[in-house]
Amino acid sequence: MSRRLISTGSPFEKAAGFSRAVIDGDFAFVAGTTGYDYATMTTPADVTGQTRNCFETIEAALKDGGFAMADIVRATYYITSPSDADAVLAICGENLGDIRPAATLLVVAGLLKPEMKVEIEVTAKRRTT
């Protein structure tokens, strides 16, 4: 299987020179995904809405590449405020509670734009069984 690039259609992907996801064999590498709705290029003000949007974008990218959420083996969560951790982790649990990938949560000084409160990246491996 050849390398395949997945895009959300966001103009930022082309301008910044990256893909939402790269499919390489049985692996999918999904780039750090913030809470934007890429159809409207808007983001909710609250971290819960942003986290939900992250997972919607991630799921769509995985599906486009022939993967399912159940294929996720690794997740990294970046938040800009420790006070947002409980809200973010609750949405992570809703989406990944049965999958239980290896995961890391990092509190960072900031993301690219001040309205961004959360960014999530995942790696998936196609299941063979």
Rank of each mutant, 00 (worst) to 15 (best):
I79M: 14
S83A: 14
R4S: 08
A45W: 07
S83E: 14
E115T: 13
T43K: 09
V88N: 02
A21Q: 10
R127H: 09
A75Q: 12
Q50F: 09
S19L: 03
G32H: 02
E119N: 15
L105E: 08
G66D: 03
T34F: 04
T128N: 05
F67V: 07
S19Y: 15
S7Q: 09
T42I: 08
T8Q: 06
I91M: 04
R3Q: 14
T51R: 03
R20E: 13
T34H: 02
F29G: 00
T123P: 01
V122R: 03
V47G: 04
G25S: 05
T128E: 09
S81Y: 12
L62W: 07
D98L: 14
L89R: 08
V47W: 00
I99E: 00
L105C: 15
P11I: 09
T8S: 15
R4W: 02
K117S: 07
Y78E: 15
D86M: 04
T80E: 05
V73D: 10
L112P: 01
N53A: 13
D71I: 01
T128M: 08
K63R: 11
M116S: 09
T42F: 06
G93I: 01
G110H: 15
V122C: 06
A85C: 06
R127V: 01
K113T: 12
L62N: 03
E94S: 10
E13Y: 10
A45M: 09
E119K: 05
F27C: 05
I120V: 15
P82A: 14
Y36I: 07
R4P: 01
A60H: 09
A103Y: 14
T129E: 10
E119Y: 00
D37V: 09
M116W: 12
T80Y: 06
A70Y: 01
A39I: 08
I79P: 00
I120P: 00
T8C: 11
E115N: 12
I72W: 00
T129I: 06
D64E: 11
K125H: 14
T57R: 00
E115C: 11
Q50V: 06
N95G: 00
A124M: 07
T40Q: 11
I58D: 02
I23P: 01
T57D: 12
R126M: 13
A68P: 01
Y38V: 06
T104N: 14
V107I: 14
L106M: 15
T80N: 07
G65N: 07
A109D: 15
L105K: 14
V22H: 04
A109S: 15
R127E: 02
R100Q: 13
T80G: 07
F27L: 09
T57Q: 12
M1S: 08
I23M: 03
I6Y: 02
F12L: 12
A102G: 15
G97T: 05
T76M: 11
G65R: 07
A103D: 13
T104K: 14
V118H: 07
T128W: 06
G66Q: 05
L5V: 11
T80H: 08
F29T: 04
